[in-house]
Design a binder for these strands. Structure first.
Lengths: 218, 218
DNA sequence: ACCTGAACACCGTTCAAGT
DNA sequence: ACCTGAACACCGTTCAAGT
């Protein structure tokens, strides 16, 4: 490595580069060695700024949490607030798909993570939910939002157009006699496509409607 | 490798050993090299039975799907059937935590996967849901079940006792002035613990209740 | 104080060779 | 037909050394 006048490394630049790498190629393509290369630096130079790869990923999760809009405890009704929160979480996970499945994995959450959960619990408590019921509402919504993001991440198509192509390709290989209901659904989806946005909304509406029961018990 | 009278390798034995390894140490601890060692065989010997590591994991997913109980289309009402299915999926994912997040990731699902989705769609269609509504119900339930499994997998405690310990440890490090609602919830959970089973049931009830709206539209 | 270089113990997978 | 051995291009992380 020749002596050049590089901007010195710092934690934020390392994190930003790591997030960019993972956004492009997924978490498994983010290696300490590639990340070092981004800065024209030897891999070991990174270890001054992050303890190890796991600590790097943990810090990246906080970057994602920081992008999520905080629910407003004193504003509109809880359903509107929770709906906005769900959309904000989903949007962040679509920008950073590598983070899907890792959002709740840290034993020591960073400040953005704490701020987020504190604000969300605050919103529900101020809306009149008992503590246990607020936990139930948050747990159910998080499960739904994270699970939906998981399916969108792992399913092999993204747009309605792609869905038609994949479904058609898969459908052609299905034994129609053995799996009549699969044929039915692939035929329909191949014809009219599939919108993740609509699907997300419908399930979210159903869940929020179902959770109203908890509200009425207070 | 000395010449011994080994049972010859075959696909099923390879898969079973791979699942056992992943059950114990997680997916990242399942390497082709370690798997080969289980059989006292050189890594390359495995490549006669699986194309590569990705194909191995894909086949393992089918092993998990095969363990899930098929919903009965002609039996009880759809809510009961979907509730049983949700429990069966969750149970399989608790036995095989490495599979959480991978269940819907294959472009070419194997027979157990197809049987499962065909039976589930069949159950909903026979219950009177329109095709699109059956898709909505299945998508919402899968999101919830997979998302819940994800949180249980990644959250750093399992039993109610462990939850108390972790929550107490984490709680001690929280700034009470900055995060009052977090303090409130950690205090409560440290006192009375947290049961994943109860939590799962409450959210599932709410979602099923909310999905009834779709049923009434038919 | 900060960065480097060599080394260690791992990976998945290739290719050509052995029996 | 089935298994092997050596090799290649990667990993994360250590340690001791350089400036």
């Amino acid at each position: 490595m020749t002596k050049t006048n590089r901007i010195p490394l710092n934690r934020d630049r390392v994190l930003a580069a790591a997030v960019a790498l993972a956004d492009n190629g997924g978490l498994e393509s983010l290696s300490m060695r590639k990340l070092a290369q981004e800065f024209g630096v030897v891999p070991m130079a990174l270890y001054k700024h992050v303890a190890n790869r796991q600590a790097l990923v943990d810090a990246m999760i906080d970057v994602v949490f920081a992008e999520i809009e905080l629910p407003d405890a004193t504003g509109s009704d809880w359903k509107t607030a929770m709906r906005r929160r769900a959309h904000s979480v989903r949007a962040a996970l679509l920008r950073h798909r590598w983070a899907v499945g890792l959002m709740e994995s840290r034993e020591n959450p960073g400040p953005p993570n704490r701020r987020h959960h504190n604000a969300t619990m605050g919103c529900l408590r101020e809306a009149g939910f008992s503590l246990r019921d607020a936990v139930h509402v948050l747990s159910a919504l998080d499960s739904y939002v994270y699970g939906f993001a998981l399916q969108q991440k792992t399913l092999p198509f993204d747009t309605a157009q792609e869905s038609r192509e994949v479904v058609e390709r898969v459908g052609r290989r299905i034994d129609a006699d053995a799996y009549p209901y699969l044929i039915e659904v692939t035929t329909e989806l191949a014809k009219s496509g599939y919108s993740y946005d609509e699907e997300f909304e419908i399930g979210l509406d159903a869940l929020l409607a179902g959770l109203t029961t908890l509200e009425l018990q207070n």
